[in-house]
Design a protein around this nucleic acid. Sequence first.
DNA 1: TATTGTTATACTCTATAACTATA
DNA 2: TATAGTTATAGAGTATAACAATA
Lengths: 154, 154
Amino acid sequence: MESKSTPSPQDCAAGILDIIPAVMRTIRNRMRQEASFELTVVQFRALARTVRTGGLSVSDVAEHVGLTLPSASKLVDGLVKRGYMRRRIHPNDRRISIIEPTVKGKRALQTARGAARRHLATMLEHLPNRDRAVIATAMEALRPVFTDDNGKAG
Amino acid sequence: MESKSTPSPQDCAAGILDIIPAVMRTIRNRMRQEASFELTVVQFRALARTVRTGGLSVSDVAEHVGLTLPSASKLVDGLVKRGYMRRRIHPNDRRISIIEPTVKGKRALQTARGAARRHLATMLEHLPNRDRAVIATAMEALRPVFTDDNGKAG
DNA sequence: TATTGTTATACTCTATAACTATA
DNA sequence: TATAGTTATAGAGTATAACAATA
């Protein structure tokens, strides 16, 4: 594999298009199979954002997970109904719902994240150290391109 | 960023879990927005597999895209109805449907792939060459872990 | 009037169960 | 009986449009 000498943006994009969906499918399927995974990827992301920020609006959720506002509202509905988060009215603007995680939500997130991480880690275990280093570095390179935030999500 | 010295499988997994969904969301949203993208990610993958293999069973499609057999059957239904592929009966076993791409299917795939690649490439353009090299290498490292096949998909 | 969010409605995707046809 | 696939049915997720409440 001596194709490492400066791939074009197109080559790089092709590689991403080729691999990322497969990785995502693995993550998603795993979430579906595991009993401890009671969250879809979107729900996971929404909850993670809620936990991370400590409290945010429905619009913020919508933007973060890439849903329309009505869909985000329904997404929150479901997570509230299941006890992972709660709605609170913004003290200065009664139109705004502040979404906050519950203790159960924080726990579920940690459980889900841990299980996903462990499963992925198992799959990566047999790679040479060097490959893992490259992968980790690549993820950090991709972060600013595909993420609004700057820090670690979660 | 001097965290390159041998990240643990867990660290590596955390990075993947952090970034991959965001990348995937970008790809998916782009596919939804672009008029030239008449395919969802799953449809895209199924069609790509069909084109790549030249002909395969519904079960093969199901396994490749990670759907149940009935769902894959319906997926094929839709793609056949829209003229991207056709069904043919296996000459030696009449139970098996051989799925083949049509000319329109091959063209649509190339169009979709090109558009996706161009869009992603634009996003990656401003990265330093070195980052792109790392990303491309990382994708190749991930390929055998998350993919059944060995060659390039497409 | 503009903004934030919810409700109403419909469509797509996916799953499980039951079924058909073939081996 | 076992296998490949389809049909029937139902549930989740998402979108657009219409609405309600607040600013």
